[in-house]
Computed example of a mutant assay.
Amino acid sequence: MADGISSFWGPVTSTHEWCEPNYVYSSYIAEFFNTMSNIPAIVLAFVGLLIAVTQRFEKRFSILHISNMILAIGSMLYHATLQRMQQQGDETPMVWEMLLYLYILYSPDWHYRSTMPTFLFLYAVIFAITHYVVRFGIFFWLHYALVCLLCIPRMYMYYIYTHDRLAKRLAKFYLATLIVASLCWLFDRLLCKDISHWYFNPQGHALWHVIMGFNSYFANEFLMYCRAQQRGWNPRVNHLGIFPYVKIAKPKEQ
């Protein structure tokens, strides 16, 4: 904690702290950079939501973009307070969001339409309650990594069956940002003791937030393109400045 600045939120009760000194810039924000770095993710998710609504995509994509915003807001509250309750408000939506990705990725080929959303909903509720009661530690990260890994084979299948060059570029941006963000996360987590002695803190965890905001945006747009292709909506990738987005042309009967 910085000299002369007290904590508005009281003692730290979260199970994790990150490689950033607490309460340096404000008594209301424990980890300033880790908190503010979630803002780009909220903005990008809002842009994605506008695209999904104006292009009349299925509601699943609106919910996906909203879940991205909820996750970023939960992360802001966690890093601002370093309280156990807010930590769960960050970690639980992380799992819920990945369950939503599993639904979007696998539901097109699922023959029993009601079983998958019912199972995933019940799983999400049970996980949230169990995580609150048991307070998972390393098991949370192993579980989260497993759920993420379940998405990769399907994303790869969508990639190899996509022939549009600009759409494939969205998938490549998704993979590149995922790798870079993961390296930033590991760098901040594993080398924190060394970084604390450096003159300049590269803020690896804050960079993780920013890059993962772009990662989610690219992933969502690529999945929107693939879904539009499945529905015969003639998707194409346009650009608004430097931002790629998917434009569709639904048949009139739809």
Score class of each variant (00 low, 15 high):
Leu120Lys: 02
Leu100Tyr: 05
Glu97Pro: 04
Gly89Cys: 03
Phe127Trp: 01
Glu31Leu: 05
Pro108His: 03
Ile248Gln: 04
Ala167Ile: 14
Leu82Cys: 15
Val47Arg: 15
Ser107Glu: 14
Gly137Arg: 13
Ser216Asp: 10
Tyr199Phe: 09
Ala2Val: 08
Leu240Ile: 08
Met212Thr: 15
Phe214Met: 10
Ala30Val: 02
Met36Lys: 06
Gln88His: 11
Leu44Lys: 02
Thr130Asp: 06
Phe119His: 03
Gln88Trp: 07
Arg84Ala: 10
Ile195Ser: 03
Ser62Phe: 12
Ala52Tyr: 15
Tyr161Val: 09
Trp96Tyr: 14
Pro40His: 04
Arg227Ser: 13
Tyr159Gly: 06
Asp3Ala: 12
Ala41Ile: 10
Tyr217Met: 13
Ile138Trp: 12
His65Gln: 14
Asn68Thr: 10
Ala128Ser: 13
Leu170Asn: 02
Tyr25Val: 06
Met76Ala: 05
Gly204Phe: 00
Met69Asn: 08
Cys19Gly: 08
Ile126Pro: 01
His239Asn: 15
Ala176Trp: 04
Arg56Val: 05
Val43Arg: 06
Ile66His: 00
Pro21Trp: 06
Met76Ile: 07
Val147Phe: 07
Gly204Met: 00
Leu166Pro: 05
Glu253Asp: 11
Val133Asn: 08
Met155Thr: 08
Leu105Thr: 02
Glu221Gly: 10
Ala167Ser: 11
Arg236Asn: 11
Tyr112Pro: 06
Leu191Trp: 05
Val53Asp: 13
Val24Lys: 14
Ala45Asp: 05
Ala80Arg: 12
Trp208Cys: 01
Gly10Pro: 08
Cys19Asp: 07
Ala80Glu: 11
Asn34Trp: 01
Leu170Trp: 04
Pro202Trp: 02
Phe33Asn: 07
Ala176Ile: 09
Pro153Glu: 10
Gln88Met: 12
Cys184Asp: 12
Glu253Thr: 13
Glu17Ile: 03
Leu77Met: 00
Val133Cys: 09
Met69Pro: 11
Gln83Phe: 10
Gly241Met: 12
Lys172Ser: 03
Met224Leu: 15
Tyr158Phe: 15
Gly204Arg: 01
Lys172Leu: 04
Tyr101Phe: 13
His205Cys: 05
Cys151Gln: 03
Ile248Trp: 03
Met98Lys: 13
Tyr103Gly: 00
Asp3Tyr: 11
Arg154Val: 03
Ala167Asn: 13
Ala2Tyr: 09
Met69Asp: 07
Gly213Ile: 06
Phe218Asn: 09
Met212His: 05
Tyr199Ser: 11
Met224His: 13
Ser6Arg: 14
Leu71Cys: 14
Trp198Ile: 07
Thr15Ser: 12
Pro202Asn: 01
His209Ala: 08
His197Ile: 08
Ser6Cys: 09
Tyr28Trp: 12
Trp185Ile: 07
Leu240Thr: 09
Val24Phe: 13
Phe57His: 02
